[in-house]
Structure formats: structure tokens, C-alpha cells
Amino acid sequence: MLPDSAPLSAATATSPAEEVLTVEHVSKSFGDNHVLQDFSLTLHRGENLVVLGKSGSGKSVLIKCIIGLLPVDAGRITVLGQEVGALGHDELDQLRTKVGFLFQSNALYDSMTVRENLLFPLRRHWMADRRGQEESMVMQALDDVGLVETIDKMPAELSGGQRKRIALARTLIIPPEIILYDEPTTGLDPITAREISQLIREVQQKYTTSSIIISHDMNCVRLTADRVALLVEGRCYAEGTFQELQQLDDPIVREFFV
């Protein structure tokens, strides 16, 4: 049913931009549940790459493998020139400061206020040139997501959309080179979802970050994607720009674009 060879490529010409992240022939299983099978993907500098896939297809597993939260069974993941699986604890921590990760569940620290949530990554990575600036960095990050007034609230006091935005602010507070977004707009109303999508675009332009965005919200995909990859049954089934995939005449691809 699936083509054995390379993914359906709709791209007319590949850009020569620098590769910041590559996933090569990665497989990952949980017992008998083969989630990723020989999955490959490349992210170029300054690009927003959307990974589309059905619920349970292994999108979250994919980016958890990329950040090293889950070990891969086979294959190789390279982030900013370093192979994730081969790094020691300290090197991995160092690499992670350059990679932002937005959790599907937000994962805000519920025993801390919004301010402390944002200060946490700052305090952890003490840098001399930032001394005394933490407070203004927190304000800046909150301003970016338009939630300055929530600074002293606890996460439990925030709405779902606000929590998502605070989580985004926490991800962006030390501007990362690469951001991995796990369903940034799921569960939000269409207006907030559009705001978040626009925010993702702004961040890309402001900090020239490269991002992998996991989503099945087609509006978000349309707004944010430079390129789209389709994850079907553990493989990269097709890739190309939004328009290209939209025009592809393949039954599986069509299902996503109705």
C-alpha cells in the first residue's frame, strides 16, 4: 500500500540552505507497537517544517526522539551538527539550550507562578552577560505573547489558551536556534489558534529560527508551513509545500486536505 522507496516528493527544486537537523532512517517501537519505521526528515535553516499525521501516528514520539527524551531503536538524529544519541549528559544539556520544545500538554510547572516558570530556564543557564537582566527578559517574553498581566498568577488560574502562550513564552525566553512545537493550536478557539500561528511566524522572522511544527489544524498549517511532511504508518509518506501537497492526486494525501 505504501511506496517502499523515497517519499512522494512534490518539490520542484530543493533549496540549498544549510541543514540544521536531520533524521535518518529512524525506527522506534514500544513492544509490538512499531511507531516509527525507517523515518527520515531534514530541516533547513530558517525554515518552518510542519509534520502532519493522524492522532497516534507517532508525531510526539518523533520530536521526543529528536530532543533525546526517548532513545531511538535504530537510525541517527543529528541536531546542529551533533548526533543526539551519542552525546553525554552535559553535552546534551548544552545542546538543549539551543533547542526549544513546546509540549503538547504545555508542561508548565504548577507549583510555580508564571514568573518563576519563565525564570526557571534562565536561572538554570547562568550566563554572565545576562546578570540582572532576568526580570526584563521575563517581561519581554510575556510581552511577546501578550500576557504581561498574568505574571504573578499560578498556571492553574490561567485558561487553556493562556497556558499555551505562557508555555510558548517559556520556550522562547532564551531564543533557541531550533524550536519543536507539539500541536501549538490544538484545543484552542479559531481566533486564538490564528494568533498563535501568527506568533509562530513572527518568532521565525524575529529570531530566524528553524522549526518543526506538529499539527493537524489545517489553518495553522497553511499559515505557518514553508514545507509539509506527512507521517503515515511510521514513515515520511510525502513532502512538499502546502500548495504542492494540496494538488497531489494521492488518496492518502487527499484525506488530510479535504
Binding site: 527524551l69 520544545f101 500538554s105 504548577d110 538554570r124
Partner: peptide, 21 residues
């Protein structure tokens, strides 16, 4: 209960991703 709920809501993973042990 505290660490359990931090584990379940991925807060422990979030710390790890933030470069903290």
C-alpha cells in the same frame, strides 16, 4: 503525589528539556 503528577503532566520532561537534571 507531587513527583507523580509532575511525571504525568510531563513537567519532569520539561525540566530535562530545559537542560536541568
Amino acid at each position: 503525589a507531587e513527583l507523580g503528577s509532575m511525571r504525568v503532566t510531563e513537567q519532569i520532561d520539561a525540566m530535562e528539556v530545559a537542560g536541568t537534571n
